[in-house]
Simulated scan of single mutants.
Amino acid sequence: MVRKFSVLVELNYKKEQGLKFYADNLNKSPKTLSNIFSLLKQQTPLNIIHNRIILEAKRYLNYTDKTAKEIAFELGFEDVSNFSRFFKRNTGINISNFKVDYLEKE
């Protein structure tokens, strides 16, 4: 179940950010899917989805010249402000500071 979920996330994270999509594809309810992950002492399914989106956002920010708006659109966000809030909530740092920190490390 965990492996199937991981494959689904990898194939769909740019288009689907909600847990319901993945649960439906695995013929489970979102609650059942979360309970399975909890029993197996795994991250929550929603955290796995969010971590994958954040990983890709960081890759775009580090290795491309794309703007935050372009990255937001690429990752399935309709509004750059929603993407910015999502990024800060999940990383603890805003996008512009993340870029500056990366450039300082080079």
Rank of each mutant, 00 (worst) to 15 (best):
V2A: 12
V2C: 06
R3V: 06
R3D: 10
R3E: 13
K4Y: 10
S6Q: 15
S6G: 07
V7Y: 15
Y13P: 08
K15F: 10
K15H: 08
K15A: 07
K15S: 11
Q17I: 02
G18K: 13
G18E: 08
L19T: 07
L19K: 09
L19Q: 07
L19Y: 07
K20C: 00
Y22Q: 04
L26G: 05
L26D: 06
N27V: 01
N27I: 00
N27T: 04
K28L: 14
K28F: 12
S29W: 05
K31I: 02
I36A: 03
L40A: 11
L40S: 10
K41Q: 11
Q43G: 00
P45G: 03
L46W: 01
N47P: 03
N47I: 00
I48S: 13
I48D: 12
I49M: 07
N51Y: 06
R52V: 01
R52G: 01
I53M: 05
I54H: 06
A57H: 09
K58N: 10
R59F: 13
Y60V: 00
Y60R: 11
L61D: 05
T64F: 08
T64C: 11
D65S: 14
D65G: 13
A68R: 14
A68V: 14
A68C: 09
K69M: 07
E70F: 04
A72H: 12
F73M: 09
F73S: 14
L75H: 11
G76E: 11
G76V: 02
F77I: 09
F77E: 05
E78Q: 13
E78G: 15
V80M: 03
V80S: 09
V80N: 09
N82I: 00
F83G: 08
R85V: 01
F87D: 02
F87C: 05
K88Q: 10
K88V: 00
N90P: 09
N90A: 04
N90S: 08
T91R: 12
G92M: 08
N94M: 00
I95W: 06
S96G: 01
S96Q: 07
N97C: 01
F98W: 14
F98T: 02
F98K: 13
K99C: 05
V100E: 07
Y102T: 11
Y102A: 10
L103A: 07
L103K: 11
L103G: 00
K105Q: 06
K105Y: 03
K105L: 04
